[in-house]
Design a protein around this nucleic acid. Structure first.
Length: 500
RNA sequence: GCGGGCAUAGUGUAGUCUGGUUAUCACAUAGGCUUGCCAAGCCUAUAACCCGGGUUCAAAUCCCGGUGCCCGCACCA
């Protein structure tokens, strides 16, 4: 489905819509409706079950979403987000002011006001590096962070967190103390991040307020032992730099052991395997649509030593899109915060020697995956539209209908209440014909529908049995009402990784 | 940010070029009749010209500004 068509469908069904619609909308902001909010929450639950479940030493925390200025200064966000940009009025290419002034001012532009930069551009008659035109714009400082007045004095500044990772780094010292004082130590966060994007686009793909799910693993690079045997036999669809440079865009399937043999650390490949399994086995993206895209030295941020993006081919957006990534960030983060805060964040594990832990970051865009799940799992099947979500991700896992509202409504309502009380979320519906109700639930991604009919309420062998209808096969089966909870509940639990 | 395109009920649309009747049609939604296990049929109801300004006797239609969306470029530490 094309992006427009998919978004129209999601709007119509109340999955999501633009924020502040009645005022004409606000770029880059979206609201989730009932189905969307439920789906997003289930994705988050499945993510936490899988990744926090990877180790006894991985924990979920919830840090603040506002960062004091000192934090973003130390992390590098302040300087990197305020680079002034100059645009060529002729060919419309944008450049960093630093690039344009490179030759005449090799010391850089830090500390200069936009007007001062403009003066230098004018006095040296600088031209566009692309087309040679002298029509260069006045420098514009764009800061992707939302700045806030913090406190009542008006003197302190703070920023909305541009990523959730900083909250984990800030919490490291405390986590060390409350934890087992052992490495590796995993700190997971599912939270909001805010970026004042220049051009928000493609609905959930570039938003100004979005949700990230990230796991920061602090470890000793000399001793990061992982149960690699659980990953060794997996084959991964990787697209590595040499293959990319040879002009290939499709991945090749390479065994985990082979990746290690090529020089990637075991701990990295082990986690990459589990990230791949999450996308294939938990979110159930088709394996052939997934590729692990290695970023080259030039492409990745300077502090990332190894980076693979997890990309999924999305029809609505015409190509592979980044839905997650695995970054080996070295000791950059704790180093910067040690320096910035004046507090030494190095630790001494029991029986070990003092070190500044390194960080392996597993990062996911939650909103992007909600879109991805709509793109890959929601499709037309002849007349009907079916959202083939895994049952544990379905916003409403069970629909309950009376075949004839006038006759079986009380029984069906009571059944829905019983299931709800047992922790199975249901939707009761008696409007229109039975086929219409099935179609409605198919579109909402509901995997199971229960229909109460004549035999259910009549005396006879089928008393207290209902039909259980499967979304994907449309097959029906008679099931005793009393057995329903035991029957349905296992499918509604998200998978967890194997662990000793 | 730049360039191009677009904006009409909940959704998709006709009408805009060439200003003029009660703004078209389908689906969806609500109610009724009928049917009773995969979007059937009939009747009824609800519901729209993105916002602001201008031109005109008259604006969904023409002009200007704004906002939003789509595509391309740039950006995405």
């Amino acid at each position: 489905m094309k992006s427009d068509e998919l978004f129209a469908l999601l709007r119509r069904r109340g999955v999501l819509w633009p924020s502040a619609e009645i005022y004409g909308g606000a770029q880059g902001l979206y609201d989730y409706g009932p189905l969307g909010a439920a789906l997003k929450r289930r994705v988050e639950e499945a993510w936490a079950a899988w990744f926090v479940g990877l180790s006894h030493d991985y924990y979920l925390i919830q840090p603040a979403e506002i960062l004091p200025e000192a934090v973003v200064r130390a992390s590098g966000h302040l300087e990197n987000f305020t680079d002034p940009e100059i645009t060529c009025e002729n060919c419309h290419t944008a450049f960093r002011a630093e690039t344009i002034l490179e030759k005449v001012r090799p010391e850089g532009v830090d500390g200069l006001l936009p007007t001062q930069i403009a003066e230098i551009v004018n006095s040296h008659h600088l031209k566009c590096p692309n087309c040679g035109s002298p029509a260069l714009s006045v420098p514009r400082a764009f800061n992707l962070m939302f700045a806030l007045d913090f406190g009542v004095s008006g003197k302190e500044r703070a920023y909305l967190a541009p990523e959730t990772a900083q909250g984990s780094y800030l919490s490291f010292a405390r986590m060390w103390d409350v934890g087992r004082r052992a490495l590796p130590l995993g700190v997971a966060v599912i939270g909001k991040a805010y970026r004042n994007e220049i051009a928000p686009r493609q609905v959930l793909f570039r938003m100004r307020s979005f949700t990230q799910a990230e796991l920061q693993i602090f470890f000793d690079p000399a001793h990061f032992l992982v149960p690699f045997e659980r990953a060794r036999d997996e084959k991964l669809p990787v697209l590595r730099v040499p293959r990319r440079e040879a002009g290939q865009e499709s991945p090749e399937w390479v065994g985990a052991a082979e990746l290690v043999a090529s020089g990637l650390p075991e701990f990295y490949v082990y986690h990459l395997v589990h990230v791949f399994r999450f996308f294939r086995d938990v979110l159930r993206y088709p394996a052939e649509r997934i590729r692990l895209f290695e970023k080259s030295d030039q492409e990745r941020a300077f502090y990332n030593r190894i980076q693979f993006d997890v990309e999924v081919h999305l029809e609505s957006l015409n190509g592979f899109k980044e839905l997650g990534a695995v970054h080996y960030r070295g000791d950059y983060d704790l180093g910067r915060h040690s320096e910035g805060s004046g507090r030494d964040l190095s630790v001494t594990p029991t029986g070990g020697s003092k070190l500044l832990p390194h960080v392996l970051e597993l990062t996911f865009g939650v909103d992007r995956n909600v879109w991805g799940l709509a793109d890959t799992h929601l499709a037309k099947d002849g007349e009907r539209t079916v959202w083939r979500l895994p049952p544990y991700l379905a916003p409403v896992p069970v629909g309950v209908f009376p075949l004839i509202a006038k006759e079986q409504a009380p029984y069906a309502l009571a059944l829905a209440d019983t299931l709800a009380a047992a922790g199975v979320r249901t939707q009761y519906d008696d409007a229109g014909t039975i086929g219409k109700r099935y179609a409605r639930m198919d579109e909402a991604g509901t995997p199971y529908c229960l229909t109460v009919d004549g035999p259910t309420v009549a005396d006879g062998p089928e008393h207290d049995t209902v039909t259980l209808r499967d979304r994907d096969s449309k097959a029906q089966e008679r099931v005793r009402a009393a057995d329903l909870v035991a029957r349905l509940r296992p499918a509604l639990e998200p998978p967890r990784p194997a662990r000793s």
